[in-house]
Amino acid sequence: MTTTYAALLRGINVGGGKRVPMAELRTVLTELGHTGIATYLQSGNAVFRSDEDDEGALAAALEQALHQRFGFTVDCLVRDAGYLAAVVGACPFPAAELEGKQLHVTYFDRTVDAERFAGLEAESFLPEEFRLGNRCLYLYAPDGLGRSKLAVELTRPRRVKGLTATTRNWNTVAKLVELTRS
């Protein structure tokens, strides 16, 4: 059975570092045998179809292919269309009332328990707030991610050690759901 997925690449095409042109990302995905490939923005978002049903195996194969092609490591998460839609549906914040830059989702490679964020004094960051979801974290940052003090605290090494994580603003989250439905 063919499933539609989104690949979320971490840390590419920002600053002068790891450059992965989207045309080459599409080529890599094609060479891996995937179909229906589309990319969104330059920040490492791709939608594709595959007969493989293991998100971890898909991510590992993509990471390996990108390393072979570009010579550097790119952490990748792969999530199926149903999961992406469920993340949108479970959003604990009023997404329809917010600007896309105010709401973000950090996707994790595995389930993250609340203990990881124990000791964080959430009240001191208000009006910024976060909530954990299914292998994700929702962040409300009314002044945007770039000005968010809570985002800095949430990504401190002691909180994300051992995790693969990548963040997308709500506009991108919603667009990926739309693209996986196409």
Rank of each mutant, 00 (worst) to 15 (best):
C76A: 15
L29V: 10
F108S: 06
A95K: 11
A118E: 14
P157R: 15
A122W: 08
R69I: 04
T155W: 03
L58E: 07
R168F: 09
E31W: 07
G56N: 08
G16Y: 08
Q68E: 15
F72C: 10
A174R: 15
L62S: 04
E55R: 10
R79T: 01
G33F: 07
D51L: 02
D54H: 13
F125L: 01
F48S: 01
V173M: 14
L150V: 03
T164W: 02
E55K: 03
F108Q: 03
T167C: 06
L145T: 02
L179H: 13
N171M: 06
L120Y: 12
M22H: 15
D51P: 00
A151C: 03
A46L: 04
T167R: 01
R131N: 05
A174V: 06
E99L: 07
Q42L: 04
T155V: 06
D143Q: 15
N171K: 15
H67R: 15
E178G: 07
R19A: 14
E129N: 08
S182T: 11
Y138Q: 07
V87H: 12
N134R: 13
R147T: 10
N134F: 01
G100V: 03
N169I: 04
E129M: 03
Y83A: 02
H67D: 06
C91R: 02
L77S: 12
L29E: 04
A114V: 11
L41W: 10
H104L: 06
L154W: 11
L126H: 14
A114L: 11
F72Q: 13
F70T: 10
E55M: 00
A122N: 04
A57R: 13
T172F: 08
L41H: 04
